[in-house]
Each structure stands twice: as C-alpha cells, then as structure tokens.
C-alpha cells in the first residue's frame, strides 16, 4: 500500500509540475511538448483510477491530436513572433501577486468543500449496472454514452459539426504553404503503420461493446490516420473533395438524429431503441460516428475548406 501511495504522490506531483512548467515555459515549442507529455501522465493517472476508456480517449485525442494541432499552429505563427513567450508581456508584480492570491483562495475553497462532502457519496453507478443487461452492450461507459444518455452524445457530435462549419467559414486553404516533402523513410513508415492504425481503429470500435473502446477512440485513431496522410501529402484535398467531405462531416449528426426519428416512427421515445435489437442499433450508430468523427478530426487538422484544383498525377 505504501508503494501505491508513493506511486500516486510521484504521479500527481509530476502532473502538477508539468502543468506549471508547460504554462511557464519561455519557449512556445517547449510549452507544447510539455503539454503533450502532460497528456501521457494524465492518462496514466486515469488508468490508475480505473478509467481505461477515458485514458484511451485522452491518449488518442487529448495529447495526440491536440498536440498535433498546437504544433501546426505554432509553426504557422513562427515567422512573426520568434519567441511566443518573449511577446508575452510581463505582468506587473502587483497584478501577479493579486491573481496569485485570488487563485489560492479559490483553490483552497475548492479543496475545503471537497473534503466536506460526506463519503461514500451517492452516485448513479448502481442504476447503470442494474440496467446494463437491457442496454444492448456490456461496457457500462458505452451504455451510458449511446443508450442511457445518447442525447448528450448526439449534441456532442453536433458540436464537432459546428466547429467544422466555423473552420470552413474562415476561408479556403492557402494554395501551398512551404511545407517540406517527406522522403523515403516516411513512406516506408506510412506503408507499415497506416494499415495497422486502421486495423486498430476497427478493433477499438468492435471492442467498445464490451470493453474499453468505442466510437470516439476508434474515430480518433482513424482521424490520426487522416492526419498522417495529410501531413505526408499522401492525400491532398482539392476543391472537388468539398461535397464528399461535407457529406461525411454531416453523417454523424444526420445518422444519429435520423436514428432518433426512426425510433419515434417506431412508436418509441426519441432514441429509444427496440430492446431486442438495441445492440444492432448502437453498433450501426457507432460505425457512422466513427467515420464521421475521424473525418471531422482530420478536417479540423487540415483547418480550412480545400481549395486546390485536382491534379492528375502526383507531383512527387
């Protein structure tokens, strides 16, 4: 037990220190790398707290895709503000101490109130486990996400869609930024890794029914495949890809909401699946979500509406 305590203390200490170091780093690149490492440690903490589903998502989305997005943006800005931290105005000492004092009071109150909560606190866990048998899946997190609280998940998919709309509205992709072409090592790597990643995505989707995994984790891994394709220019979106891209972005929302309307038409409640076929319904919805989430994440990484003309031959 003592060793567990040591493990916990070291892990928590590392997490807090990393957060501080990342946000205080003078160099923007250092900040991003430290933030990505923070993602690793946070995922470890969540594994420790028996939250493997969340750790999986954090590994895929939190540190992987967010890190790539931050790196891309940092590179983009590098030309003008060489040191981002240097451009960061130093606050006056009084302001610094004032904010520090306020934050200390707030965190102190948060901690004190937390200690005052009587334990064990009531929770919904027993209700979830009691209804798991009729939910159509064996993984309780998937049951919550796609059956008991499916409406939340529908709205979450809508958030993804809304972001794509906002990003596309900002303008078209610039014709060709001076990004380098990758060499043969990359292509060997891609040939080896990308198919494996697709396989893993499928595995995670299938896994979600009874073990940690599911549409979001699978979608994130598949989205990562898309990001690698884009980065290596194995696939360059053109203006002709806009309509298919729109279709796939909308697939999650339309598929999920359509399923809701279908259940209404069947005479059930909105998103109330027929109990005997709940597993099939959930799996079909999850499959649509996976594809849509993957495309959306890759599209968000691309960061604009594609504008280039289709080229007949690869200019490699």
């Amino acid at each position: 037990m003592l060793l567990w305590l040591v493990f916990d203390l070291v892990l928590i200490g590392a997490i807090v220190w990393l957060a501080w170091a990342a946000l205080a780093a003078r160099d923007g690149f250092e900040m991003i790398v430290l933030f990505m490492v923070l993602g690793l440690f946070v995922a470890l903490a969540w594994v420790r707290l028996q939250a493997p589903d969340v750790a999986l998502a954090e590994a895929a989305v939190g540190s992987g895709i967010t890190g790539a997005l931050l790196l891309k943006t940092w590179r983009h800005r590098r030309g003008r503000a060489a040191g981002d931290a240097a451009a960061d105005a130093r606050p006056s000492r009084a302001l610094g101490f004032g904010v520090m004092g306020l934050v200390t009071v707030l965190t102190g109150m948060l901690a004190a109130v937390l200690v005052l909560i009587p334990r064990p606190a009531p929770s919904l866990a027993e209700t979830v486990f009691a209804n798991l048998a009729v939910s159509g899946v064996d993984n309780p997190v998937t049951a919550v996400l796609l059956n008991f609280r499916a409406y939340d998940t529908l709205l979450e998919v809508v958030v993804l869609f809304a972001v794509v709309v906002v990003v596309w509205l900002l303008g078209d992709a610039e014709a060709d930024r001076r990004a380098p072409r990758l060499g043969s090592i990359f292509f060997g790597f891609a040939r080896l890794v990308l198919p494996v990643m697709v396989l893993i995505a499928g595995y995670l989707l299938w896994l979600g029914g009874f073990a940690p995994g599911g549409a979001f984790q699978a979608g994130a891994v598949l989205g990562a495949v898309g990001i690698v394709l884009l980065l290596g220019r194995l696939y360059t979106p053109t203006a002709a890809d806009r309509l298919p891209a729109r279709l796939v972005f909308g697939l999650g929302t339309v598929g999920f909401a359509g399923a809701g309307l279908a259940t209404l038409a069947l005479g059930n409640a909105f998103l109330g699946y027929p109990p005997e076929a709940a597993k099939t319904w959930i799996l079909v919805i999850e499959a649509m979500l996976t594809v849509s989430i993957a495309a959306t994440l890759a599209g968000l990484f691309f960061g604009a509406a594609p504008s280039g003309r289709p080229t007949r031959e690869s200019d490699r």
Partner: peptide, 19 residues
C-alpha cells in the same frame, strides 16, 4: 494505442519542421 499514436507527433514535427 499509445504506441501507435506516438507516431503522429513525430510526423507532424518532421512534416512541418523544415520550413
């Protein structure tokens, strides 16, 4: 998943790095 996704960061680093 950790092992396979570590690749993205490197690819992103390399693919945008030479600018």
């Amino acid at each position: 998943v950790f092992a396979i996704l570590a690749a993205i960061a490197v690819v992103c680093f390399v693919a945008t790095g030479e600018v």
